[in-house]
Design a protein around this nucleic acid. Structure first.
Lengths: 349, 349
DNA sequence: TTGTAAGCGTTATCAA
DNA sequence: TTGATAACGCTTACAA
């Protein structure tokens, strides 16, 4: 159990071949005679050889490592995205070194330094800490996901379309007034496009609408207090009207739903709710929440492909002037559930 | 941007020192004269040197890598545990290579092979796929977390105590009958001790109780149908009695709660619910769910310490006969919330 | 305080 | 089809 590690040298000695031949056995087996291949296989088994990829990396310069920077893993959106990235190992073979939760730019830089020291071949960034400009200056390919992406390749949900889908859905259901809850309207954040999509649809269709942008930090308690307060204003302001409320994400939508259900003993027919993301919470809430679903598997796969394209491009044409960053946009899919179809609200899904 | 990588050799040439001195500058700076330290620092800056830890690993044999096997990341429990492990980087400096979701033993072995090839120093296992016996035979330190752990070091919540806490809490609140919902009573799974703790408390205190063990797979839909069915049986069987229901985890507790609230338009006073884990869902449900909370940060920290102890012990006394595995037990903390304190159920938390 | 040289376990080049 | 030999970039005796 604690014996010295068996190396190719040991196999070479054992079989009386050279290290080179052993290496070739792994990398171009067809260049080793069938007979000797068997001898080597035998020796590998007998000595219980295990490859050492660290040495291979040093010799070849390819680590098959990708760095992953994620804000946290307790929000289910990030959990689901991470899950999806990790599973891409089966397809692409890249391993992930993951760092979570850089509070400050400084620690995020430290993480990146560390990742670079391990010779990662690419970096995927979900955190919002550093500017894409700084990220673009790194000596490795970078892809951003649902973050500011001016100077880097990225994959985003078509947030603008998502906002429109939500508005159209609510309008189609005969709402008298469309309302959008959000907490962040900063231009550079892709999710803020949801606001624009929602607004533009309402304007185009001449629908009465209202934006309620109330900042909150990411703690549940604060989110809750802000949303409940906002909801109460809406209740007072639009009595008797059929209100279609599009909420910026499923967690917030769930808070709103719980508030209404608690207050009225159920979701009144005059309230329709649509969330965003299609995270688990939207399915598991007291009434299944209609939501604009991000296609996470497609997004992560697209991100991997962008990254791999960069990795390959880099080795080929090293000196090319930085091309304009590629921004892939993935359409969301509206998923109608009980919060926007009151007639089915009582049925279990 | 695509220049050749700068190595210690370059710094050596630039400063007219030897590679050795440059290396020492990093590893034992005090052994380099102050004057020359500055020269080297200058050269590092001018040439923009970045360390290559892959080479260092090869030379020293320490990777600072830990492998992490987790069933998935969409269940918030695992997300929270992962989050906690990743943050331990700040304390211990270990980087994590993460694999999620091995459906089969075969793929799980492949993951482990891959991790070994990268010379991980230790392995943390949350998956239930492989036996601890097989894991124990690996040539690296292994620590399990809330999994079968006969042959490996492990960290578990004191599930037995947790079951007792839940029962006592419900009994103290004057329940006429105590009921436990669970889906898996297999001895080797630590969580099954929750059943034993619950049962023993009821027996000791001569309390009427019932165990309802109904297997379900991990899909939400199936969980839901099983739990709703079971709940309906309970409703019929114990009309008028104050029922204290201890549910095996928060997700299941949330499903039960939603079912009751939907059916009765609120949580009837005669139902008290306690979940397990203290995952986010317990706080974010329509009525905050009382739960037996796992102390995740303490558990992950304990796991890291166990692993590090093994890593260090291994280098010191290589030949020691495998000591008996160490099992650390972390007490859970009961968190009373509205589902077991009907009088506060209406207040926002 | 600094340098020489060997070594970590692979792969790559060139020759045989 | 195989083998010598030199990388890869760093650490570490041992020597000076």
């Amino acid at each position: 159990m604690s014996e010295k590690k068996v190396t190719m040298k040991d196999i070479a000695d054992f079989t009386h071949f050279s290290k080179t031949t052993i290496s070739r056995y792994f990398n171009r087996p067809e260049s080793v005679s069938t007979e000797n291949r068997e001898k080597i296989a035998e020796a590998l088994r007998v000595l219980n050889y295990k490859e050492n990829k660290v040495a291979r990396i040093l010799a070849r310069g390819k680590t098959e490592f990708i760095g992953l920077l994620v804000p946290n893993l307790f929000l289910s959106y990030y959990g689901e995205v991470m899950d999806s990235f990790l599973r891409s190992y089966q397809r692409y073979g890249y391993k992930f070194i993951v760092f979570a939760g850089s509070d400050s730019e400084e620690t995020e830089r430290k993480y990146i330094e560390e990742l670079m020291a391990y010779q990662i071949e690419g970096l995927i960034v979900l955190t919002h800490t550093m500017s894409s400009e700084e990220l673009a200056s790194l000596p490795v390919p970078v892809v951003g996901l649902e973050r500011e992406d001016k100077y880097i390749d990225s994959v985003n949900t078509d947030n603008y379309l998502g906002g429109m889908q939500a508005a159209r859905h609510l309008a189609d259901l005969g709402c008298d007034i469309l309302i959008h809850f959000n907490s962040d309207a900063r231009q550079e954040i892709p999710a803020s496009r949801r606001i624009a999509g929602f607004t533009d649809y309402c304007l185009e269709q001449h629908l009465p609408y209202e934006l309620l942008i109330e900042p909150y930090d990411n703690t549940y308690a604060h989110m809750k207090s802000v949303i409940c307060r906002t909801a109460n204003q809406v209740i007072e302001k639009y009595p008797g009207l059929r209100k279609g409320i599009f909420v910026s994400n499923d967690s917030a939508a769930s808070i709103l739903l719980n508030h209404l259900v608690s207050r009225f003993g159920g979701l009144p027919e005059e309230f329709l709710i649509v969330g965003f993301d299609n995270t688990r919470i939207s399915q598991e809430s007291i009434i299944p929440i209609s939501t604009v679903g991000q296609q996470i598997d497609i997004m992560t796969d697209t991100a991997m492909q962008l990254l791999i394209a960069q990795i390959q491009g880099r080795t080929e044409k090293a000196g090319t002037a930085a091309a304009a960053p590629v921004h892939k946009i993935i359409p969301p899919i509206l998923i109608p559930r009980a919060t926007s179809m009151p007639e089915v609200a009582q049925k279990t899904e």
